[in-house]
Each structure stands twice: as C-alpha cells, then as structure tokens.
Computed example of a mutant assay.
Amino acid sequence: MEKTTKKISWREKIHEIIYEADTQEGKLFDVILLVVIIASILLVMLESVKSFDAKFHEYLYIGEWIITIFFSVEYILRIISIKKPLKYVLSFYGIIDLLATIPMYLSFILVGSHSLVALRALRLLRVFRILKLARYTGASEKLKLAMRASKAKISVFLFFVIIVCIILGTIMYMVEGAENGFTNIPKSIYWAIVTLTTVGFGDIAPQTPLGQLIASVIMILGYAIIAIPTGIVSSELTKSTLSEDNNTQSCPTCLKEKHKDKAVFCYNCGSVLNP
C-alpha cells in the first residue's frame, strides 16, 4: 500500500522554520537570528563610544542597515506565515520585533538639525532587540512559571518588608531626630529601605549609640531577608518541571507553543498543527 503524504505549502514551511526549532532548518534559523541580535546590540554599544564611532562610523552605519533589513524581512515573514497576523503584531514579541526594526526607518522622517536629539533617542530603541533573546531561552519558561506560582507569597513578603521599613523608619526618626539628618518620617523610611537592602548610600547615618544599634540590627536583618524570596522562587522552580514530551511546535493560528509530541490539534484553539 502506497503511503500518501500531505504537501506542505510555502507558508507552512516558513512557519515551521521561523516559529519552530524541531527541524534542522528551524535550528539553523534560530542560531543565525541569535548571532544577528547579539551583533546588533554590540553595534549600538560601540556607536555610543565617541572615539570608536568617529573612526568607524561608516562601517557601523552600513552594518546597522544590513541588520535592520534582516529584521524587516524576518518581521514580514512572521506576519505572512500565520493565519491571524494581527495576533502576532499585537503580541509582546510582535511589538518587540517592531521596536527592533523601525528606528532606522524613522531616521528618514526625522531629518534636520532640530530632530537630531529625538533621532538619537529613537535610535537607542534598537537596544530592545535584546528582548528578542527571551523567546530562545528554554529555561525562561520554567522561570516564568515559577515566578507566577510564587507571586502571592512574594507579594505578602514585600508587604511585610514595607511595614518593617515604616516602623523602623519611624523609630529612627524618634531616636535620632532632625539634628542627625532624620528630618522627617519619609526620609527616615528612605534610610531604613537603603539600610535594609544593604545598599548604604551614607547620605544619612545614625549618630547616637541606640540609633547605631538599631542600624546594626537592620543591616543583619537585611541579609536574612534576601534569602526569603530566593527560597520561594527556588522552591517553585523545582516544582515547575515541564513535561519532556513537549516540543517547540507553534500553532499557526494562535501562536501557542509547547505542544505534545505527535499532537495534531492545538491545545488552545483547536486548529490543525503543521505536519
């Protein structure tokens, strides 16, 4: 019996290469894109060094246009390869991809000496390209799930820290007074936050023995507090283990990922997945 195979359209092939990493072409595309993103960030950094920019400005400009054209083609291909383009355009990654592409094109619109300051600021938007790296970091999915699961616990912890800072700041205001720099309660609370987080700017410092004793307790307490959110997230990170039979297949309709191996339909919208 002869085995029949479904013919893959050019849009499905582009979708498979750009949105998925299970195929050789998809892995190669991801590697190339990662290299280009890192190169673009390096160009932005080097351009900010005046001495280097003055010497190699032309090469940096040409390199930036090559990268911009590459990102433009990638952005267009991402739009035309899915069934609902608007869903991608308005998504988080869609907006990031647009921000990574438009700054160089805006340079044609904002011309003249009066626009140079705005143009320079807009060109710095290219640094948003580093956010494109997030979609290629496999561990980011686990971290996202862990942060989401520990959101309530961390919120309670932060609320507790705020209460502690208000109490300690008020106590320091009463103990030290305005003559030692603690002129009001908000400023004393600011000092408590700075001390508790072990930053210690040194702009305000207790002078009385009791104030210094309280400050010492706050500093030691700060080291203990650092470990609490770390432990919460670490615990949830251990629990949030993704199933090993998931793959990188992306739905061409809703763009949901992490489908089961051999899955035919999307678990989110029910659309047929690319073969």
Rank of each mutant, 00 (worst) to 15 (best):
E2A: 12
K3E: 15
T4S: 14
T4C: 10
K6W: 01
K7H: 05
K7N: 08
K13E: 13
H15N: 07
I17Y: 04
I17Q: 05
I18R: 07
E20Q: 14
A21H: 12
D22H: 09
F29Y: 13
I32C: 11
V35F: 06
V36S: 07
V36M: 09
L42Q: 09
F52E: 08
D53S: 14
D53R: 11
H57T: 08
H57G: 10
Y59F: 14
Y59G: 01
L60H: 05
I62C: 00
G63C: 09
I66C: 08
T68I: 00
I69C: 03
F71W: 05
F71T: 03
S72E: 13
S72L: 15
Y75S: 06
I79Q: 11
I80D: 07
I80N: 07
I82R: 01
I82D: 09
P85C: 04
P85Q: 06
L86Y: 01
K87G: 10
V89K: 02
L90N: 13
S91P: 04
I96C: 07
L98K: 00
L99M: 13
T101E: 05
Y105A: 01
L106S: 02
I109F: 12
I109A: 10
V111I: 14
G112N: 10
S115Q: 13
L116V: 10
A118L: 15
R120I: 00
R123P: 03
L124E: 12
L124D: 10
R126H: 04
R129K: 13
L131T: 04
L131V: 04
K132Q: 15
R135V: 03
G138N: 14
E141T: 13
K142D: 13
K142W: 02
L143M: 06
L145H: 07
L145C: 06
A146L: 07
M147Q: 11
M147H: 08
M147C: 15
M147D: 10
A149R: 09
K153I: 06
K153Q: 15
S155I: 12
V156H: 10
V161P: 01
I162H: 05
I163V: 15
I163T: 09
V164S: 05
C165P: 02
L168K: 01
I171M: 14
Y173P: 00
M174W: 11
E176D: 06
G177T: 01
F182L: 09
N184L: 04
K187L: 15
I189S: 01
I189Y: 00
W191K: 06
A192D: 10
I193E: 11
L196C: 02
T198I: 07
T198L: 14
G200L: 14
F201I: 09
T208V: 09
I214W: 01
I214E: 10
V217L: 14
G222V: 03
Y223Q: 12
Y223G: 14
I225K: 02
A227S: 12
P229K: 06
I232F: 07
S234N: 12
S234P: 00
S243L: 04
D245F: 05
Q249W: 01
S250V: 15
S250H: 08
C254L: 07
K256S: 15
E257Q: 14
E257A: 10
D261G: 02
D261C: 04
V264C: 03
V264S: 12
C266R: 02
C269V: 08
S271I: 05
L273Q: 00
